[in-house]
């Protein structure tokens, strides 16, 4: 696929740029919107990796669900605080130094490893393979996951209940 490097680099720029915007934007609401962009970019990366089902899940759950929840949270807290929430950063230099050094070290490690330079072609339907895996070999974690989500749901309702 000849277009892959181009798409990859475009996605890289979008992803890194929006991620930086998420952590640096003063306006919290903007930060959430930038996060939505970053999550969409991630979905693009999944598409590039020919994992269409995951890209769809990513878009639906993250870009749809999480962003919506966060927006709700911001709106609720802003209403409670009674003023627009701005946010600032602290310890920027130290954190940037640490984060950048960690990145440099990870990259230098990764680059030196003899890893596959090309991926094998997709055999059959990946979505089908995922569905079969989830319902056969990984059925137990899958069911536990359902339990976890119910617990999270109940917990969230309990925490966010109105004052008596």
């Amino acid at each position: 696929m000849i277009g892959e490097p181009i798409v990859f680099w475009v996605l890289t720029v979008v992803l890194v740029g929006s991620a930086l915007a998420v952590v640096l934007s003063k306006n919290l609401f903007h930060a959430v919107l930038w996060l939505a962009l970053a999550l969409t970019g991630t979905a693009g990366v999944f598409l590039l990796l020919e994992a269409e089902f995951l890209a769809a899940v990513q878009l639906l759950l993250y870009a749809g669900g999480v962003v919506t929840i966060v927006v709700f949270a911001i709106v609720v807290t802003e209403r409670l605080v009674g003023e627009r929430i701005t946010q600032t950063n602290r310890r920027i230099t130290g954190a940037a130094l640490v984060a950048f050094t960690v990145l440099a070290l990870i990259v230098s490690t990764v680059v030196r490893q003899p890893l596959a330079s090309a991926r094998p072609a997709v055999e059959g339907d990946l979505t089908r393979a995922i569905g079969e895996g989830v319902l056969t070999r990984y059925v137990l974690p899958f069911e536990l996951l359902a339990l976890l989500m119910v617990a999270a749901l109940l917990g969230a309702i309990y925490f966010a209940r109105p004052d008596e």
């Binding site: 310890r91 130290g94 954190a95 640490v98 050094t101 960690v102 070290l105 990870i106 490690t109 030196r112």
Partner: peptide
């Protein structure tokens, strides 16, 4: 979290040194 990150950094440096 900052401390954890610094610890991660030290760990990575150690890995580098070992490699």
């Amino acid at each position: 979290v900052y401390g954890v990150a610094v610890g991660l950094l030290v760990l990575l440096l150690w890995v580098q040194w070992v490699l």
